[in-house]
Design a protein around this nucleic acid. Sequence first.
DNA 1: CTTTGTCAAGAGCAGTGCTCTCGTTCATGG
DNA 2: CCATGAACGAGAGCACTGCTCTTGACAAAG
Lengths: 232, 232
Amino acid sequence: MPPTSRAERRRDIERRVVEVGRRHLASDGAAGLSLRAVTRELGMVSSAVYRYVAGRDELLTLLLVDAYGELADAVDEAVAAAADRPWDERVVVAGAAFRAWAVADPASYALLYGSPVPGYEAPAERTVEPGTRVTLTLLRLLAEGVEAGEVTPAGPAPVGDTRLLADLERLVAETGLPGGADVMGRALLLWATLVGGTSLEVFGQYGRDTLTAPGALLEHQLRLALAVLRAP
Amino acid sequence: MPPTSRAERRRDIERRVVEVGRRHLASDGAAGLSLRAVTRELGMVSSAVYRYVAGRDELLTLLLVDAYGELADAVDEAVAAAADRPWDERVVVAGAAFRAWAVADPASYALLYGSPVPGYEAPAERTVEPGTRVTLTLLRLLAEGVEAGEVTPAGPAPVGDTRLLADLERLVAETGLPGGADVMGRALLLWATLVGGTSLEVFGQYGRDTLTAPGALLEHQLRLALAVLRAP
DNA sequence: CTTTGTCAAGAGCAGTGCTCTCGTTCATGG
DNA sequence: CCATGAACGAGAGCACTGCTCTTGACAAAG
């Protein structure tokens, strides 16, 4: 009996493919991720990797799911570590963790919230659930704010469009957010602010040397968006 | 004397390279843009295109500058067409035009505000100026609001971090925005909301069928951000 | 008219994703 | 316990990419 069974070896190699792939993704970006290069580093010939991964797209999907999970873990961990602080400060903590993860691994962040890789469609059944974990965490924090009476039922700008109202009400029903469509509209402001501010920084749109404290800027933007949730 | 001189032919081909490149970019995305495919469509052999374009990166730069210009033109045009409306509604008009351009040409939008193409660094001297046109337009509208006394000097969340305060004050000095660092901080909320909301929609992060009126959502988000600029 | 420089074409290099075949090795069912 | 079938790694090969270099034809300028 060999020390490592066939099934064990297979699992081990599958794990290493993803691990090397993640390192290459971090250094070369999604478009530069080469299946051949990953295979070379594993000491195999180029065709052998197809025994473990259906193709480049599947490796990208694995890395995508991985990244969603890591990001959500980082956010949830930060929120849990601040459990004694009020809901709105925990939203800022969550956003700061979101940004910190993105800054630490820009290529993975780009895979999640940047331009979709052309010709590659993430399979919904494997990516939707891990992709919504962060938003669920944020919504849970907002729910605390609603139940504490600190989130106003109506914000400073009414939801005018009737179709938008229907969209928001459907989202409220789907997510179980306590509070109406107006609260959901302001929650989406928070979400857009978080993703927008992070993307602007990580993708270099603020300019090279214009900001010395980008983290503080994002927190400020989040506090402003939170003020809208507390304002009449 | 031939009907078309050598210089004329050259300019014509240079123009057509960019034109075909833009079409390929729109259909295949930045990563799928193939210089060989463009050259084929022009009826030339693959190596001939290097007489007109230094390489793939330069074609991407040309398309990038082009896209920045088109986007800024679309925004400026929409703002000019609403010259009779108040400054804050013109901000919404500008944002809606921004989004409409992005939805109409997602690949170009991704080139501007999505993940940076790995290994490709946009040459600053050719991209910074066209890239800041949209932000300058928005800042001009905000300046109107400040001078009309409708933008409050201090918003609902103070700028706490001192380094952030210095960053914002430098930006105020560089852009000549009437109003202090606090106004600039809220202006960056607006900018992050616009880019974030547009990216979330264009990059498919809202989910496939969750929104029937995405344009209305972005306008709502912008109105909420504008409320922060008018709020104490 | 001659020289100079531009041009398109072609061959070629190194790299990519992916497919197929071919012996070998392992696991398991008779 | 051993034979059969599945899994495996290696290699060759196809079509594609960006890019370089050389070659011969042509136009523009002296």
